[in-house]
Simulated assay, not measured.
Amino acid sequence: MRVALYEAANVMLTRLVNGSALKSWALAVANRAGMRNAKVALARKLAVVLHRMMRSGEQFLRASRTALSHAEEFDERISRRRNTAGHGTSPAGAKSLPGRWIPLGR
């Protein structure tokens, strides 16, 4: 699986992929840390996306909305599902994020 993810990252970075937010992000990483590190970082990001899709059962949709807005919508649905499922709440003064909490006022 690791080899396939690395190869997918290599193809995304070395071949023409139009309008990919992931490629833009990985190229910024490549400018900071080098192409080899960018490929590994992109492979990991692809693994995280695939894992989230498998856990939620969500289908891949190539749509016009941005990946960020789609991710925010997904996080909101997960938060609503957790709140209605009777899970514990975050401590007072904390920003609610799926699966974790971050104290405000640092």
Rank of each mutant, 00 (worst) to 15 (best):
A8F: 00
A38S: 03
W101M: 08
S69Y: 00
S90A: 15
R65S: 08
M35R: 02
G93P: 07
A71E: 08
V3H: 02
R2F: 14
R80F: 08
P103N: 10
I102A: 14
A41W: 05
L97T: 15
R65T: 07
A28S: 12
N10Y: 06
R2I: 15
M1Q: 15
L97H: 14
S56C: 12
G99D: 05
A38T: 02
A28M: 10
A21E: 03
Y6P: 01
R82A: 06
N18W: 08
A38R: 00
M35L: 15
T66Y: 00
E73A: 08
S64Y: 03
T66C: 01
I102T: 10
Q59T: 11
W25R: 13
K95G: 14
G93D: 12
S96N: 12
K45Y: 06
D75K: 11
S24L: 10
L61A: 11
N37L: 10
L27W: 07
A41Y: 08
Q59R: 14
A92P: 13
A38D: 03
R15L: 11
S64T: 10
T84D: 11
G93R: 13
G88Y: 08
P98W: 09
S20G: 07
V11Q: 12
D75R: 13
M54Y: 04
R44V: 15
H87P: 01
L50P: 00
Q59V: 10
N83C: 03
E72D: 08
A85H: 01
N83V: 02
W101G: 10
I102P: 05
R80Y: 03
L42E: 00
G34K: 03
R32S: 09
L16P: 09
M35C: 01
N10I: 00
H87C: 01
A92M: 05
V48E: 13
V3E: 12
L50T: 05
R55G: 00
D75Q: 15
H51Y: 15
K45N: 07
G86T: 02
V17H: 02
L42Q: 01
M1P: 11
H70Y: 01
T89W: 10
L61K: 12
L5F: 08
M54E: 06
L27K: 09
E76S: 14
S56I: 06
A63T: 07
N10P: 00
V48H: 11
R15F: 05
M53A: 14
R65K: 02
G19E: 12
W25K: 10
A71G: 09
I78V: 15
A33H: 15
G19I: 03
H87R: 07
S69V: 04
F74V: 12
G57H: 05
A47R: 09
V29S: 02
R77Y: 08
L42T: 02
G99Y: 09
A28Y: 12
L42K: 00
N37D: 06
E58S: 14
R77E: 11
E73T: 08
M1H: 13
L22I: 00
R80T: 09
P103K: 13
L16F: 15
